[in-house]
Design a binder for these strands. Structure first.
Lengths: 189, 189
DNA sequence: CGTCTATTTGAATGTACTCAAAAGCGGTGG
DNA sequence: CCACCGCTTTTGAGTACATTCAAATAGACG
């Protein structure tokens, strides 16, 4: 149960005392999942925020033709979840599963709400996380309009150099929003 | 200088005492801008968060061919700015200008940072704002990949019924990411 | 009234998708 | 260890959605 990667991540933004950190971790559950195992199903209410200790998760939605659109890959050190469902308490549109065997730290939304009052500094931590994520998705929303498939592929490669090496092409296609057939053609000129 | 719309907006998320509210507003500057007047230029460092008291602002970027891509319309009651530049302190890629004559409440990033320590509850307010915005841009990033131009147009109409009535078509095109010519053809079947 | 910008329309083009089929590859069980 | 099954990748032909470029028309504003 090595939690230091999450500890580190928190301490990068805020200072917590030993007691506060212990309190926080008393609500954190560790879970190991195998490749392809689900942590959230489409249509379910999301009750947990998920932090990847090792391995990699992904969140994605599926359209009426069965095509997957991957919203996020979460390698080691990233948070992931269905923010819409987590914020609103309504059933979400995303599924979350494991890309590889992974170890996850999870914290329940209800516990987190309690922790916000006991450790107000956590508001800073999650505010900064949300702001950084916001910057990323704002630019991705624009890029998905103005860049060609090839340019989106190149950005993916520079942004996730370690992922590009070990992901099946199909999943890269689902992230940049093209069909697997088209990505294949593109890569062979 | 009617600030009650911002007061209301804040009180929807957190309780502030009269003193805290006064302190907050002591750092708020009010500014009136004419249609087309700029509040931020592409390449500048963004030093202010902007709240629209009346009227409407927009943020957008421009590609190498001169095409505009509008990231956000901010009618009355919305915050707007270049989050990337605001967070990182680096020169941004967005311009912000007024769609109509508008009245803006602005707060400097440096003042806001000071306020975070004096009124920690503000972290909750801006955390919640960032989370809600994140939910929106995450879904927009996905929609920009999986929806056709027509579907994106329809979403725009349902999301901004009041804007669709008074915006030039060209700006709607720049928001949904199509050429003005194509939007025109689409609307005339 | 004249100028500048927005909208419309048309023809030609390009980017990416659909459908279909074949080839490659990895894991699993016999 | 090999054969088979299922999934991923490749390839091709035809198609659809959206762009580019050009030119004409309409509207807004001083």
């Amino acid at each position: 149960m090595d939690q230091h990667i999450l500890t580190e991540n928190i301490l990068k933004q805020i200072d917590l005392t030993k007691e506060e950190m212990d309190l926080f971790f008393s609500f954190v559950k560790i879970k190991k999942v195998k490749k392809k195992q689900f942590l959230l199903l489409e249509g379910d209410v999301s009750r947990y925020a998920l932090f990847v200790v090792s391995g990699c998760l992904r969140s994605y939605c599926v359209d009426e033709n069965g095509y997957q659109y991957i919203q996020q890959f979460a390698p080691e050190g990233w948070w992931i979840g269905d923010m819409y469902s987590l914020v609103t308490g309504k059933p979400g549109y995303l599924a979350v599963d494991a890309v590889f065997d992974s170890e996850i730290a999870m914290i329940a939304k209800t516990d987190l709400n309690r922790l916000y009052t006991e450790i107000p500094k956590l508001n800073i931590y999650f505010r900064v996380l949300a702001e950084n994520a916001l910057v990323y998705y704002q630019s991705r929303a624009m890029e998905n309009l103005r860049l060609t498939a090839k340019e989106r592929y190149e950005r993916f490669c520079t942004r996730y150099p370690s992922l590009i090496a070990c992901l099946p092409q199909k999943q890269v296609a689902a992230y940049i929003g093209v069909t697997p057939e088209f990505l294949s053609k593109m890569l062979n000129q």
